[in-house]
Design a protein around this nucleic acid. Structure first.
Lengths: 105, 105
DNA sequence: TCCATACATGACACAAATATCATATGATAT
DNA sequence: ATATCATATGATATTTGTGTCATGTATGGA
C-alpha cells in the first residue's frame, strides 16, 4: 500500500452502500440510462444520479451521452475480478455474515 | 452478484476507513499484538480493539492468543490481491482522486 | 490472593454519509 | 419559443459510522 489510505478509503466507501451495489448489479446486465436504472431498481431518479456521480468519480462506471439519454456502463475490468475475489473470500471466511444476511438480520 | 448486497456492503464498509486501512498496512509486515499495533500507529488501544473486531468479523484478520497477548495477522489470501487489484484500477481510472490526495485535498 | 498488564465491551457524543426535496440544466419535438 | 422529457445539482434532515470514555474480563507474576 504505497498510496495514502485516504484514496483507498474513498474507493471502498463508494462500494460500501447497498443501493450503489444494487445499481452496479443492474449495470452488470449491460449499459443503461438513468430512467432504465430507476425502473430496474425502484429508486428515485435523484438518488440514482447522485450515486452514479460518485461511482463515476471512482472510475467504477463510465457515462456516454446519446441524445437526451445518458448511458452508464460498468467498468468490467475492475468490477468483475473484484466481485469474484470477494465472493470467494466470503465463501471461505465470512460464513457468519452471509448467514445473518440470509436470515435477514 | 448472487449474494445480498448487504453482505458486500458490510465487507466494503470495513475497508472504507483510513484508520482501519492503516492497521491493515501495519499488519502487512507480519502479525502483531494490540500493544504493538498501538505503538506502530499511535492510535488508542480501545480504538484498535474495536476496529480489529470489525476486521475480524469480515475475515480480514485472524486472532491468536499467546499467553497475555493476542496476536492479529492479516488474511493475505484476500488482502494482497485485493489491494493490487485496486492499485491498478486507481492508476488507470482514478487519477483525479490520487492527485487530490497528494495535494492534500 | 492481590496487583499489574493486556485486551475487550458498552454507551454515548460527535462526525460523516445518505436519501430526499426543491430546483436547475440540457436536449428534443412541436 | 416553449413545453416536455431526461438528468444533474444544492441544501438539508436524518440515518449511520466513529472515536473516546468508563468499565469489564482474562492472564500471569509477586
Amino acid at each position: 500500500m504505497d498510496h495514502p489510505t485516504g484514496a483507498y478509503s474513498i474507493f471502498f466507501t463508494s462500494l460500501a452502500n447497498p443501493n450503489r451495489l444494487q445499481i452496479i448489479n443492474v449495470l452488470r446486465q449491460g449499459r443503461k440510462n438513468v430512467t432504465q436504472l430507476c425502473k430496474a431498481t425502484g429508486f428515485e431518479q435523484t438518488m440514482i444520479s447522485h450515486n452514479l456521480k460518485r461511482l463515476e468519480r471512482c472510475g467504477m462506471v463510465m457515462a456516454e451521452q446519446k441524445g437526451k439519454f445518458r448511458y452508464y456502463s460498468l467498468n468490467k475490468e475492475t468490477i468483475k475480478p473484484l466481485m469474484s475475489l470477494i465472493d470467494s473470500h466470503m465463501k471461505e471466511y465470512c460464513c457468519k455474515i452471509l448467514e445473518e444476511e440470509k436470515r435477514g438480520a
